[in-house]
């Protein structure tokens, strides 16, 4: 959270995450290089590096894109989301090595500037079968670079969450470009059914997960009619202790937390990266965002000092065991007295 910036925040969980990531990449590279060398012993070192780094980047991008929808479908995947940016930056670095080696091997032999050669070596821009697939890879790499370069919280804060999120949503364009880059590259050169089969499986998996998350991953959320002062949301028993119920009323996305025999409601949207606060837990008395661990006090929506983030708060009332919320937000950081739950309901 923002008091002062450091280069990279590493805590115990993040270090563990990165160790697993490095281990996974190492194993994959070993398997890939071993298999390639067994099948094609005549392959040159440059070609092996190009193929290994390109394949690793593609695999990592698939993992990165699968984490978001997996978390929406099942919160058990949330630990994967916690440090996704390291995964993204790693993806970019593998893509960069792949790109640089390609430029050296394929486009630096002549006396033309390698970048000019990249765009002009093949100019069948109007044809799908002969399309210069290298240019697609270049486009994707530019997007991955911009995302990796702006992945620090400094940029999130200073470009503004909206512009930042828009920039980072270009990853979907990068994904489309990369799929076509690999498909055309592989198909134009050798039509390898194994490579095309794996790529097809990856595309189907990523698309299905995102569609499933978009249409079925709305667990715990519902919409109540707008226009009333207080809207009935759910029963006391519907919320687990130290957890929340999320409701969408008009445009208000509200998380109602139950903790220590009390109820409090805040905006469901974390100030950091718009993470879903209502899918987090109360840890040490604070609402803790499941994405990156930003914390807020339930009664006033303020981050505990010295941090300065604030979210909106909402009025609640309890009638019998039914919870009602007023969807008109209080200004961010306004204290609202939590509703005490009578003993008979606890």
């Amino acid at each position: 959270m923002s008091t002062q910036y450091t280069a990279v925040i590493w805590n115990r969980e993040k270090k563990r995450y990165d160790r697993y990531l490095a281990g996974l990449i190492g194993l994959f590279l070993l398997a890939f290089c071993g298999l390639t060398l067994a099948l094609q012993p005549e392959i040159t070192a440059e070609t092996l590096i190009i193929r290994a780094t390109g394949t690793t980047a593609l695999l990592l991008l698939h993992l990165t894109l699968m984490i978001g929808p997996l978390c929406r479908i099942d919160p058990a995947f949330l630990p994967l989301l916690y440090n996704r940016r390291h995964l993204g930056v790693t993806t970019f670095f593998f893509g960069l090595i792949h790109g640089v080696f390609n430029l050296i091997q394929f486009h630096s032999l002549g006396n033309v500037n390698p970048l000019v050669s990249l765009f002009t070596a093949n100019v069948h821009y109007g044809s799908l079968s002969n399309f210069p697939f290298q240019v697609l890879g270049f486009g994707a790499l530019v997007i991955l670079f911009l995302m990796a370069a702006t992945s620090h919280d400094f940029w999130l804060k200073n470009l503004g969450p909206k512009a930042w999120k828009t920039l980072h949503m270009f990853v979907y364009l990068a994904y489309g470009l990369l799929v076509m880059h690999v498909l055309l590259g592989v198909a134009q050169a050798e039509h390898s059914p194994v490579a095309i089969g794996f790529l097809g499986m990856g595309v189907v998996t990523v698309i299905s997960l995102h569609l499933a998350a978009a249409f079925f991953g709305q667990r715990g959320q519902f919409t109540a009619a707008a226009g009333e002062d207080f809207v009935e949301v759910c029963g006391l028993a519907d919320i687990e202790d130290k957890r929340a119920k999320v409701c969408l009323i008009g445009k208000e996305n509200i998380a109602i937390f139950k903790y220590d025999g009390k109820l409090a409601a805040v905006s469901n949207i974390c100030k950091h990266q718009h993470g879903p606060l209502g899918e987090g837990k109360i840890v040490d008395g604070c609402i803790t965002c499941p994405w990156h661990g930003y914390q807020y006090l339930p009664e006033n929506g303020c981050s505990p000092p010295p941090f300065t983030e604030k979210v909106s708060t909402y009025e609640l009332k309890l009638v019998g065991d039914r919870i009602f919320v007023n969807p008109r937000p209080h200004p961010e950081g306004t204290r609202v007295e939590p509703v005490e739950i009578p003993r008979k309901h606890e």
Binding site: S129, L184, I207, H210, A214
Partner: peptide
Amino acid sequence: HRLIWVVSAFLLPILFIAALWVIPE
């Protein structure tokens, strides 16, 4: 997000198959 993925769900498979179709080599 939903819009992007609905569009991608149509566009990517079409491009994928079209590319394989026109590269019969």
